[in-house]
Computed example of a mutant assay.
Amino acid sequence: MASPIAATAPYWVPALSMLLVARRIRRNFGVQPWRPVRASIRLGFLVLVAAMLCALGAFQPQLAPGLGIGAALGALLGLLALKHTHVAWRDGQRTYTPNPWIGGALTALLVGRIAWRYTHEGFAAAQAPSALTMGMATVLIGYSLVYVVGLMVQMRRLQAPASATQANPSEPPAP
């Protein structure tokens, strides 16, 4: 007899997946506010997932080539995305505008793999991960790691606008 969670998984797993994809799509377009705490938490999570993927590659050597190639491609895409990301001050807040083509391509990769896995393989937990799935996962993780770290560096280098750094002439100087 299947548990209630397993019995309802075909309904809530795709819905949850699409919610996460919708959030990802929203972050690919337009000016985004820089949230350093969120970025730090995301970086910590990505490092943890990357470490787990490295351990998986060590314990399942047949996955190692897919993991390595995926990580290298993801890092290259992250560098390319950083080159085409614009950072600026807007209304007194640091912002960035990501390249929609690179983010859109990675989102299409993610959605395509989720759709393929769901329609052809199902979401059975007992299935062993394939090298293709793990390669695609490391593309996304490698991209995200490089992109988040690169954005952190760019935001630290971003100078405050001249009007915000100048002292108010009507105020007396601080002692």
Rank of each mutant, 00 (worst) to 15 (best):
G30I: 06
G112T: 09
K83Q: 07
H120Q: 14
A55N: 12
L43C: 06
W101Q: 05
R38D: 13
G44V: 06
G103M: 00
L132D: 10
L76C: 08
G68F: 10
R94T: 00
L53S: 07
A71Y: 04
A88F: 08
Q32F: 11
A81Q: 04
A88S: 11
F59R: 13
P98R: 08
V87N: 04
V47F: 02
I114S: 05
R94H: 00
R90E: 12
L132C: 09
H120V: 04
G122K: 14
R35L: 13
W116R: 09
R38N: 13
A50S: 09
T97H: 05
A72W: 05
A71H: 04
A72D: 07
W116L: 06
A128C: 07
W34F: 13
I69T: 11
A64P: 02
L109Q: 01
H84P: 03
A125K: 12
G74D: 02
A51Q: 10
R27I: 08
Q32P: 03
G44H: 05
G74S: 03
A58N: 12
G57S: 05
K83E: 05
R90L: 11
G122F: 03
G44A: 10
H84M: 05
A128R: 15
A124T: 12
V111Y: 00
R38F: 11
W89R: 00
R42L: 13
F59G: 15
L63M: 08
G78R: 04
C54H: 14
A39G: 13
E121D: 14
T85G: 03
A124D: 15
A128I: 07
A88P: 01
W116A: 09
G78F: 01
L43F: 03
P61C: 10
T85Q: 05
F123K: 14
A64G: 07
P33R: 15
G103H: 03
K83G: 10
G68K: 09
P65S: 09
T97I: 00
Y96K: 02
L110R: 02
G103S: 06
A131W: 09
L56P: 05
L106E: 01
R117M: 03
V37M: 13
L63F: 08
V47A: 07
G70I: 00
R42I: 08
P36V: 14
